[in-house]
Design a protein around this nucleic acid. Structure first.
Lengths: 147, 147
DNA sequence: CTCAATCCGAGACTCAGTATCGTTCCGGAC
DNA sequence: GTCCGGAACGATACTGAGTCTCGGATTGAG
């Protein structure tokens, strides 16, 4: 089953039009393993011979994010990227600092921690951002790289 | 004891010149409670009658960050800001989504969590970004605000 | 005081992301 | 199958944070 079908189905189900550019976007992100930026998609679409306007890429990503199909992650140096992810489950990501591959880590049991923070600081914690950075299994094995 | 003294001392100790603009910056950040952006400092300096160039503000913040005097945090919507913080202690921040005040929460005991992630995913986790967002004690009490 | 190294500010530049707007496309109704 | 209004499109201008550059000013060691 083509992964892009799921994306299109989600779009349709939420009442969005199934337009050409969106189909293209769906295919592009369905095949991705690691992180990607909006710019990456613009170029990828161009390379595939069905260019999509920059504005449209951002708009689509916004929708995909709202539907929980992709998630925005904030990289180490502050720039950001997207990763495809399993909708509807609370989870976080580990992002490989070398190759960019990312993996869900499921719920890491943050609740007791937020509760202890609330008790200590008096804040009411409403959300959090948690991202882990490191080397994925493949990159661990390789010699210190250039690239 | 003026908090800016500590900043100046750290600068001096690290071999940086103690210039006028840096003194101004030191004073400006020493008094801050919550988060602030580079832009905030530019305006604040201007208001105090000793304007500092934008480039200089960024350069100084970079140095301060390297010295562990301030820390860059990434806000909920992706933009970022700085908070003053206690150098040399592993800790995280809770940032108030209403007023911007921020507080250290010390070490929250993330080690066992990173270890469990390594075991589950095969990644070697080298760093993480953890930020909590919510309402500080003052803002919790107030009626749903404007501004 | 002198002098080289450091640092400064002004402003041009970059780059991601947003806003605008006239045109095009989608898809439900008929 | 055709019509039509709303949704979506692309091109492009704009914005705002952050970086780079460079000639001139400051710092502080000697």
């Amino acid at each position: 089953m083509n992964g892009s079908d799921a994306v299109l189905q989600a779009l349709d189900h939420a009442g969005y039009h199934l337009t050409g550019p969106r189909r293209a976007m769906a295919q592009l992100i369905a095949g991705r393993q690691g992180r990607f930026s909006a710019e990456d998609l613009v170029h990828a679409a161009q390379r595939e011979g069905r260019p999509v306007g920059r504005a449209t890429v951002f708009r689509s990503l916004e929708i995909f994010e709202a539907l929980g199909l992709v998630e925005r992650v904030h990289l180490a140096r502050g720039e950001h990227a997207y990763v495809v992810c399993d909708p509807a489950r609370h989870h976080h990501h580990v992002v490989c600092t070398r190759c960019g591959r990312s993996t869900d880590v499921g719920d890491i049991g943050i609740d007791p921690i937020t509760r202890s923070i609330e008790a200590r600081t008096g804040f009411r914690v409403e959300s959090h951002r948690i991202e882990f950075f490191g080397l994925c299994p493949e990159c661990r094995g390789e010699p210190a790289a250039r690239a």
